[in-house]
Simulated scan of single mutants.
Amino acid sequence: MLNSNALRKLDMQDLMVFAAVYEQNNVTEVAERLCVSQSTVSYSLKKLRSCFEDELFINTRTGMRPTYKAGNMYPHILKTLECINLCHAGAPAFDPKLQPATFNICAPEYFEQLVLPRLVKNFGAADLPVTINVHKLEVDIPVEQLRDGSLDLAIGFGPNFHRSPMDFNVQALMKDDLVCVLDKRAGSQEPRMSLPAFVERRHVFPTPWTSASNMVDGWLAQQALQRQIVARANSYSAALKMITGTDFILTLPRRIQRLLAHETLFDHREAPDGLPGFTLDMHWSQSVDQDSANTWLREQVIRACAEPPMI
């Protein structure tokens, strides 16, 4: 807010006149520099003197001499004009070629296996000095770290597996479904595993994020059923090793199954009817929605997810 109602009468031209008179000490030269008439310069000076209650510039033989108050005002007037120019120009666009950049993303292993390699390869191919630090996804989206900027993006599963506040944006990146993976020697000939057979089998569970619940057991609970989990693994690769040489079953995202479960060692069956699929979702705070660096990063993630062939 302004300290005086009189200041409302000023406009940008008045401030430009002040700065030009201070620098050139000559009304005629100021008028030529600003491409206005001398009467316009004189009118602006009259408004400035009235608003700031000071003579500001005294006409002498050597030109317009600034008063003490004008001398104190000059750097502030320059800063005001500079700020107005910045507002008009907008923030400079992020360009990773100009300086090294580090981004922090909170994401599950699914993202690390499927999307992160593409991101890194794309950055390397373009010779971009960009570093990606991935933090393990915990129980829910790390809201405060995204708000304070210590994290740039969070990647999670959807729809609605993670709580996301009203001041956040969410975008689905890709869809996937679940398949049942078994040791090659323990497979059956049925193309789809029945629900009773699924429940009767002993399961190895790879934790996609730190959580007491997951999409498979949540769906089984809706059917008033539960499965027997004999082991929990921190990674998909470790879970696959656990079922080797056993009759255990492993429920994996189809894209992960195609990537890691080599067909010479493992077999797979379609999951029981009704077991829902999921999406991979990107979350970010609305406070960085227009930030050019964050926008650039989101565009690179979307591009990596869209590039064929995504397994």
Rank of each mutant, 00 (worst) to 15 (best):
residue 65 R to D: 09
residue 66 P to E: 02
residue 67 T to L: 14
residue 67 T to P: 13
residue 68 Y to I: 11
residue 69 K to S: 11
residue 69 K to T: 12
residue 70 A to C: 02
residue 71 G to I: 02
residue 72 N to Q: 12
residue 72 N to C: 13
residue 75 P to L: 02
residue 76 H to G: 05
residue 77 I to N: 00
residue 78 L to P: 01
residue 78 L to F: 01
residue 78 L to W: 00
residue 79 K to R: 15
residue 80 T to F: 12
residue 81 L to F: 00
residue 81 L to S: 00
residue 83 C to I: 11
residue 83 C to S: 13
residue 84 I to A: 13
residue 85 N to Y: 03
residue 88 H to C: 12
residue 90 G to V: 12
residue 92 P to I: 04
residue 94 F to T: 11
residue 96 P to N: 01
residue 96 P to S: 06
residue 97 K to H: 15
residue 97 K to I: 06
residue 98 L to T: 13
residue 98 L to D: 01
residue 99 Q to G: 09
residue 101 A to E: 07
residue 103 F to P: 03
residue 105 I to H: 02
residue 105 I to Q: 10
residue 105 I to L: 10
residue 106 C to G: 06
residue 107 A to M: 03
residue 108 P to L: 00
residue 111 F to Q: 10
residue 111 F to C: 04
residue 112 E to D: 06
residue 112 E to K: 10
residue 112 E to Y: 01
residue 112 E to T: 07
residue 114 L to S: 03
residue 114 L to F: 06
residue 115 V to Y: 00
residue 116 L to G: 11
residue 120 V to K: 06
residue 120 V to E: 15
residue 121 K to S: 15
residue 122 N to L: 11
residue 122 N to K: 13
residue 124 G to Q: 13
residue 125 A to F: 02
residue 125 A to E: 15
residue 127 D to K: 12
residue 129 P to N: 07
residue 130 V to N: 10
residue 131 T to D: 06
residue 131 T to R: 08
residue 131 T to C: 05
residue 133 N to S: 10
residue 134 V to N: 07
residue 134 V to T: 09
residue 134 V to D: 06
residue 135 H to I: 12
residue 135 H to Q: 10
residue 136 K to D: 07
residue 137 L to V: 00
residue 137 L to N: 01
residue 137 L to Q: 04
residue 137 L to K: 02
residue 138 E to L: 09
residue 140 D to C: 07
residue 141 I to R: 03
residue 141 I to H: 03
residue 144 E to N: 11
residue 145 Q to S: 13
residue 145 Q to K: 08
residue 146 L to D: 00
residue 147 R to F: 04
residue 148 D to E: 09
residue 148 D to L: 09
residue 149 G to F: 03
residue 149 G to P: 02
residue 150 S to R: 12
residue 151 L to T: 04
